[in-house]
């Protein structure tokens, strides 16, 4: 499977991308400095810490949470998180009775500005195949056992809408600051395959 691959890549692939890059630069189609900026942006500046700030603010501020559920794109932009693969956001609220789970069965659609680039498992055939068909079993693999009475809702993000889950706020966090709350929010909780951590 694709996810077994964690070395420096077959030399053919490394060589092929080098060749492609050099031709693109030579033809004036790509600026090498722009390539460096892209890598820095997605490797160092964008990631699930952004989404965690959104979730923590929603937990701490009911008016913000209402805006987030009403128009997620605008509410997320209030915190400065905008751009590619986050242009049309919808946030789904997990509650004591409803658990939302996000997948992209056809490729790897994912809300980049809030969650960064997706982990390999999210893009892998097993997750994409099974999340829609057996979401409870999939969650169990992630260590999440849903009680019988909780309804599971799967969202297949096949179009231009990008979905993010607002996890349930853990108990015993009433006195925590927004910053401390954000530290409890995991990437997996915002995909819907995990829960926020206990304080």
């Amino acid at each position: 499977m694709a996810q077994d691959h964690h070395d420096d890549g077959p030399s053919d692939v490394a060589l092929r991308v080098k060749a492609l890059e050099s031709l693109l630069v030579e033809k004036g189609l790509v600026d090498p400095a722009a390539l460096d900026l892209i890598v820095d942006t997605y490797e160092n500046r964008i990631g699930p810490r952004n989404g965690a700030k959104v979730v923590a603010k929603a937990w701490a501020d009911p008016a913000y949470k209402a805006r987030l559920l009403e128009d997620a794109t605008a509410a997320i932009a209030e915190l400065g998180f905008t751009g590619a693969q986050g242009e049309n956001m919808v946030v789904l609220e997990n509650t004591a009775t409803v658990h939302n789970l996000v997948v992209c069965t056809l490729c790897s659609c994912y809300p980049w500005p809030t969650l960064g680039l997706p982990p390999t498992w999210y893009k892998s055939p097993p997750y994409r195949a099974r999340a829609v068909r057996d979401p409870r079993g999939t969650l169990r693999e992630f260590g999440v056992e849903l009680p019988e009475g909780v309804e599971i809702r799967v969202w297949d993000s096949n179009a231009e809408i990008r979905y993010m889950v607002l996890p349930e706020r853990p108990k015993g966090t009433e006195k925590l600051s927004e910053e401390a709350l954000a530290r409890l929010v995991t990437r997996d909780a915002m995909i819907g395959v995990g829960r926020a951590s206990a304080p």
């Binding site: 964690h6 420096d8 890549g9 693109l24 892209i38 997605y42 490797e43 990631g47 982990p119 892998s124």
Partner: peptide, 22 residues
């Protein structure tokens, strides 16, 4: 099964970085 990698980096090698940037 869904295979997960603990503390997965954004890119697994420089060639992945280059492909993404291109």
């Amino acid at each position: 099964p869904v295979l997960r990698e603990a503390n997965e980096p954004v890119f697994h090698g420089d060639w992945e970085r280059r492909v993404f940037a291109v």
